[in-house]
Every structure is written in C-alpha cells, then in structure tokens.
Nucleic acid binder design. Structure first.
Lengths: 190, 190, 190, 190
DNA sequence: CATGAATGAGTATTCATTCAT
DNA sequence: GATGAATGAATACTCATTCAT
C-alpha cells in the first residue's frame, strides 16, 4: 500500500527500508521511542545516513512504523468484516487490535491520538480503522451484542485501555483471557 | 514516610523539599517526565543545586513523587476499608485509584512496574497498596460482587488499563462513566 | 552598553564570557565563521556547555562579537566627533573604521547588512554608528571637504569596499597608504 | 581551456560538464558556496555521481567555475587592449571586472587570493589577467591618466574593494556611478 | 558512463550532574 | 545549606564522497 511512492525503490534500497522498519518496530517496542537513531541504524546493519535518507526525521520513522502497523490492522479487520456474523466480527476485531498492539502501548496511544493531532499519513490510515470500527460497532449493536449507548470514542478508549492492561499483565494466556472476559462481558448489554 | 532520614531537616530545607515534590508532580504530569530538572528547580524557586541535594538523581525525584502518590492512595484506600460494605469499598477504591492516576499514565505504569523492577522505596509503598487491594478484592469476591476467578495481577492490569482508557478519552464525564459501567459490570460474576 | 543585563554576572562567569568573546573574535577572524563551536570553547578553556550557556546559539555568539566591535567603533568615533575640525574628524573616522575592521571582512559585511536584516541588538549598535557617520559626512560636506552628492549608503559601501581592499592587500603599510590616498582624494570634491 | 584532457569527452559528457558549470555558477552565486553538491547536481539534471566524475571534489568544481569566469574576463579584456586608447582601455577594463564580479564577492576574493594560494589552474588563468592588468595599468600611467606610484597589487586590491562596495550598495545605478566617480577620480594623478 | 543509495565523520545543541562561590 | 555556572557525554541531522546497480 505504502501511499504515494514517487518512483519504485531500487531492490537494495527497498530491502534497507523494509529492514529499517522492521528493526525500528522491534527496537522502539522493546526499548522505547527514546532509543538513539544510531542504534537503530546499527541494528539494521546500515549507516545513520541511510536511515535519514529513508526517513528524514526520527519522527518520520516512528510515523512510518505506526502507519505500517495500522495498515496491517486495517487489512485484517477488513477480512473480518466480510461474511462474518456481526457480533463475532466485532469481538474478533477487538481481539485483533489488542493482539497486534500488544507490547506497543506507546504506539497505540499515538494511534488513538492520531485522530486528533498526528500527521496526514497517520490520520489517513487511522481514519480507515476508525471507520471500520464504527461499522463493526454499529453492526454488533444492531445485533444486540453490544451496549447501545457506546460510541466510537469509548470503543477506542477501551481498545487503548485493554492494550495497556495486557502489556501490564505479561504473557500468561489464562490471565489475558480473564481480562478479555471482563471487558467483553462488560461490553454486552446488561 | 520518607524513609530513614539521618537528621531532621531544617525548616527551610523541609519546605524546599516539599515544594520540589509538589512542583515536580505538577510538571512531570503536565509536560512529561522528560522535562529538564532545571525547569523544575526554577518552578520551585530554587537552584538546581538544591534540587540535587534533596534528590541525588532525577530518577530519585521521580521515585519520590510516585511514592507520595502511592502513599496518598494507600491512605485513602485505608479509610475506605474501614467500616464500609465490602463490595462498595472495592468499587470505590477502584474509582479512587483511577481518579488519582488520571492524566498520570506514565506514573501508573511505573507504579505497576514497581512490583517487578523498581527501587526499594517504591516497592515498599506499592506493596502496601497491593495488600490493600488484595484484601478489598477478596472481600468483594466473598460478598459475591466480583468474579471469583480474578487475582490481584488481573486487578492491577485492569486498573492500569482503565487509567489508560480515561486518559485517552479526555474529560467528558458521561463517557467516562460509560467506561466505568463496562469495566464494573464486567468485573461482576456473570 | 551591553544591553539589558538581567543580573550582574558572577566574577568567574563574567571572565568566561569575556574570554569567549575575545577568543571568538580572534578565531572567527582567523579561520572564518565556519569554525566549530567546540574549537572556540576549547580555545577559551571552557566546555561547550559554557559557551552555549552564555550564547544560546552560534549565531548569538557571532552577533555578540559584532556588537562589541560596533560599540568599540562607535565609542572611538564619538571621541573624534567632539572638538575636532569636521574634515579631519571625517577622515579620521573613516580610517578608524577601516583599521578596526581590518581582517574582519565577513564582519564588516554583516555590519553593513545589519541595517537591513540583522537582529535587534545589531541593528541598534549599527544605527548608532550610521548616525555618527551621517553627521560626520554632513559636517565634512558643509566644510567642503567631501563631494556633496554622496550619501550615507555610498559612504557605507566605500567603507566596506576599502576594508576589502585592505584585507586583500595584506600588511604593507606603504601600499595601504596608497589605497587611502586613492579613496580619500576621490572623496574630495573634484 | 579545460586543461589537459586525456581523451576528448563524449558529446553527452561534454554537455553535462558544461551544464554543471553553468548551474554551479548560478547556484554558488545565488545561494553561496555552501550549497550542497546534490542540489547542484539536481539543478543540472544529473546524479551526484556524474558531478563527481567530472569534478573529483567540490573544491575542484568551484575552481572550474572561477577559471571559466577568469577566462571570460581575460578574453574581454584582451579585446579592450587592442586598438583602444590606453586610458580608456584601463578604465573600461576596470569596469568590466567589477561588472563581471558583481554579486560574486566570494569568487572575487578567491580570485585575488589565487595569486597567493590557489591551485595551478587558477593561478594560470589569474596570471593571464594579472599580466593584462599590468599592461593596462602601465599604459594608463604612461598616458598620465593614473597615479604613477600605484602597482598591480594596489590595483587588484582596489578591484576587490570596489566589487565589495558594489555588492554592498545593491542595484541603484546612480549610486554605483558615484562609487565609480570616487574610485576613478582617486586613481588619477592629483 | 550515469545513477542515486550508502556511508560516517562532523556539527550544533541539550541536559543530568558536579562544584566553586 | 543554597546557588547557578561549568562540564561533557549524548543525540539528531547534514553532506562530501564512494560504489553497487
């Protein structure tokens, strides 16, 4: 997808760009967005110059990482939306976002904030997701599977919050499932 | 609690220390923990030297701020524990933690992380809260007001997560209440 | 002089500031304004941090250097203006500016440009000089010692140009005097 | 002149070289010699690689630009030297150099410095001009149109200085003429 | 030959921490 | 004790130059 790519990158350049994105995702997640650019470049096996050639700013790199993540989520959410029963689709999508965001709290917050103050590219991809979520939410509500009084802002907030809960909890799958139980049961009309 | 203070501080020194803590709480909350120490010193009306005399490290200052916050929460939670009906006490305490932590997500995460990797003083005060929460949780579960399968880790995770949801949501009180509805209903035995 | 000095600097701070200005003047002159700040700090015997504490920007340092230079010229020009015969005062001042500016072409150009686009402090001090030169020029013209059709812009241009000539020429005193002969004779009504 | 070119350039290579020189002249003049090489390459419609193939160093490019400028001046000065009355030839050449150098002070200084420390190619072309100017000066002095005590160094200095004056003055043609009046009258025997 | 991606040394600036006043 | 000046390691970003495609 990748937005408006001026000219197609040369093979090696594309490889470097992809590698930088992968590494940056990993490093930002593991050690925080404060990690020096040089570290990321080194981890990607390129010089700083290369990093800055592909992403003119550290912020731009962070943005690109988030856009990729958002686009991945949007793509998988789109699959769910098609021929799945509305309630199932909604809860599956909720899980999907949480799982994709796990360990990436800083990103998720940026994600949510995107609707308010982020740059164009981010806003663009987050708008897509926001729209998808709005549809899923409406569908689930029409099907009587989700409290009717909830709006998209509350849904976003719960997504962010649940992600934070999961990050806090660590890897224990049973405990994670108990969190999902609480949130999902709470989402249903009482 | 203040730990083991060798000799009691002179009056002005004590005043400076308190003022620094107040200001640091405010500034770290409003502008993030990245705010330069000099800014905090200036806002407190003292020189950096004084700041570093009271808190040998920026991290130590941050820690002290969090300890104070934890102690305040513990104190108010203790009040709730005494002669209140268990279920009410539990949900009131939950709200209390959320309200005290609102807008201080960075702190809350540090708080929660405390059980794992923070310094002694932090662990100490967070242990107090953890114990209180454990008691409140057990009480509410005995009273049949909270799902019995939940443990303290899940409770902590939900506290952190709900704080994140609230931060994300902003000030709208009705929406905040809807989040509480979801979480509290989800906490109840189904 | 020195503009609005908030509080008087501590003795050592003042010494450092002065030393930095001296060294910067020398180094910028000898090796150009492209010289790294770190070099200047080292030459002044202080750390970079100190340099940036006194001058928040490299540009600010350059500006301060120029202001000092301008103020010195203004002060000495003021002495000349008092009880000296107009024609003599004018030509002495001309020499003075040239001598003060020798080897500092980059500065002189900045000086002249100040009237157009420099920062407040620079504009301020250059306005003083400009005014003094205007008076000196008018006096010399009234005394019939300088071509009446010349204005301050032309005078400024000639000052800059003569400085450039001198820089180009090097130290040979006799040759320098020949340049002065050409310019001064050319300035006189023909 | 182009120096000793091993093999004649292919047509397109020659075109690129010429285009790079044109563009570099323009860009260095308009935005200073600090302009990145990449900018120049882009403006010339070639890649950086091509630029560096033709000029192994940025400095070499700058040098080539100056050589071309010098050669142009030399050529036009040569025309003047032939069948023109000596005094007229001298003053016309003076004007010519000034007009060609206008707005290119950085170059002119480099030009003048060439006699002292520049590379061979520059020295070569500046020697030509220097010789021409020496002849023109001698002719004008023999004709009694210029002060006899002036030498070529002073003439060079005055050329550089007058260029600086003009740069400083800007476009006002009347004011420029007044500067010429001062310098030319000053050059004449008094 | 041309291209433009990669390189990495170099530069201005910030900020936690120390120490002379 | 308090002050704030000094320190210098750390960091984002630039740009001349090289080299794989």
């Amino acid at each position: 997808m990748n937005g408006a790519q001026g000219r197609p990158l040369r093979a090696d350049a594309a490889r470097n760009r992809a590698r930088l994105l992968d590494v940056a995702t990993e490093v930002f997640t593991a050690r925080g967005v404060g990690t020096p650019t040089e570290e990321i470049a080194r981890a990607a096996g390129v010089g700083v110059g290369t990093l800055f050639r592909h992403f003119p700013t550290k912020e731009a790199l962070l943005e690109a990482v988030m856009v990729r993540r958002l686009e991945a989520i949007a793509a998988r959410t789109a699959e769910l939306t098609i021929d799945t029963e509305p309630a199932t689709a909604f809860f599956d999508a909720f899980r999907l976002v949480i799982d994709q965001s796990a360990g990436k709290n800083e990103f998720t917050r940026a994600l949510a904030a995107a609707g308010v103050d982020a740059h164009e590219s981010l806003r663009e991809s987050s708008t897509v997701i926001r729209t998808q979520l709005a549809e899923l939410l409406a569908g689930a509500q029409r099907a009587g599977a989700v409290r009717p009084e909830l709006g998209v802002p509350e849904l976003m907030a719960l997504l962010v919050g649940t992600t934070a809960s999961m990050d806090q909890l660590g890897a224990d799958p049973a405990a994670r499932e108990r969190i999902f139980d609480v949130v999902f049961d709470g989402l249903r009309p009482q």
